[in-house]
Design a binder for these strands. Structure first.
Length: 297
DNA sequence: CACTTGACCTGTCCGC
DNA sequence: TGCGGACAGGTCAAGT
């Protein structure tokens, strides 16, 4: 589902597609998903021009010329899809788009630009949201205050990575890796993929993971996320980019959703179980628990 | 405070 | 074929 690489792919697409477009009108199923303040939409969204598209962790930010910002979280099934005027409704949408005519029954918000192109926020499960804030207040949103560092930032080091986990010493390492206040942007797919890459069992407690293992996990996490961005993200069921197209990382996944198949490293059958409340995939040969853990499981 | 679990939703799939 | 239940998994609130 949308994790850092998927949200970054959407960000890049929107950055290409919607900057300098001017908002003509907005339709939405208020108050379920948007907007939190109808008067602000009238005064600061309609008539504004898109100036920038940013990302922090799994959150998208669309900056507007009014010094307001659309803040968007896709959660599990959210989509942000742009359609040019002549293909926005009815026939004519791109053949390689995963989705058909828009709006469809999962559309929560439709932004229409002055050139009659459209930006659709779809969200089948309604966990996602779109909110409008003054740009200057975005850093004060509770989530932004506590979210951890960006793992792909050039100046983010392996030492800093390991240091961030210390607060979760007694957590299984997968739970800590998924904790957004430890590291930003990691979700279930890239947690499993990077733990496999580092040969760490997801139920290893943080305090038992060595610095050397954290160093490897840091390298694997960055590598897997960079590869996923290169492949346009992972499409399991719902995820699409800003043009409605699928990402292809799942073709390159080593363990995620590959239970019953062979580990690409040693051929052992990949198994799935629950860890940190999530479906979790490992190679039982590559990712072993110390003997002392056996009693606890 | 550290850590875990349940709630929020809907569509899909599996077993009976 | 129909139907109940499990499952999907990001984040926050509530519970241990």
């Amino acid at each position: 589902m949308p994790e850092l690489p998927e949200v970054e792919t959407v960000r890049r697409g929107l950055h290409e597609l919607i900057i300098d477009r001017k908002v003509k009108s907005v339709d939405h199923d208020w108050p379920k998903s948007f907007p939190n303040a109808p008067a602000d939409v009238r005064n600061f969204l309609i008539g504004s021009t898109v100036t920038n598209v940013r990302r922090r962790a799994k959150v998208l930010m669309i900056d507007l010329s009014t010094d307001y910002t659309l803040v968007i979280h896709l959660k599990m099934t959210g989509q942000m899809v742009f359609r040019a005027a002549d293909v926005a409704f009815g026939a004519g949408h791109p053949n390689d788009s995963l989705i058909g005519e828009l709006p469809d029954r999962s559309t929560r918000v439709t932004v229409t630009f002055t050139d009659d192109s459209h930006l659709f926020f779809n969200d089948q499960r309604k966990f996602g949201w779109v909110r409008l804030f003054p740009t200057i207040e975005v850093p004060n949103i509770a989530f932004m205050q506590k979210v951890g560092p960006e793992p792909l930032e050039a100046n983010f080091t392996a030492d800093q990575f390991a240091e961030r986990f210390k607060r979760r010493a007694r957590s299984p390492v997968k739970a800590a890796l998924l904790d957004q206040t430890v590291i930003a942007g990691v979700g279930n797919i890239y947690a499993d993929e990077s733990l496999w890459g580092a040969k760490i069992h997801p139920l290893m407690l943080v305090k038992d993971v060595t610095k050397k293992q954290f160093d490897t996990l840091y390298t694997e996490l960055r590598a897997v996320m960079n590869l996923a961005i290169e492949k346009g993200g992972s499409t399991d069921k719902n995820y699409v980019n800003a043009e409605g197209k699928k990402g292809s990382y799942m073709d390159f996944a080593r363990v995620f959703r590959r239970e019953g198949l062979a580990c690409p490293r040693d051929g052992t059958t990949i198994v799935k179980f629950r860890a940190a409340g999530r479906g979790t995939h490992i190679c039982p040969t590559c990712q072993k628990l110390p003997k002392a853990y056996e009693i606890k499981i």
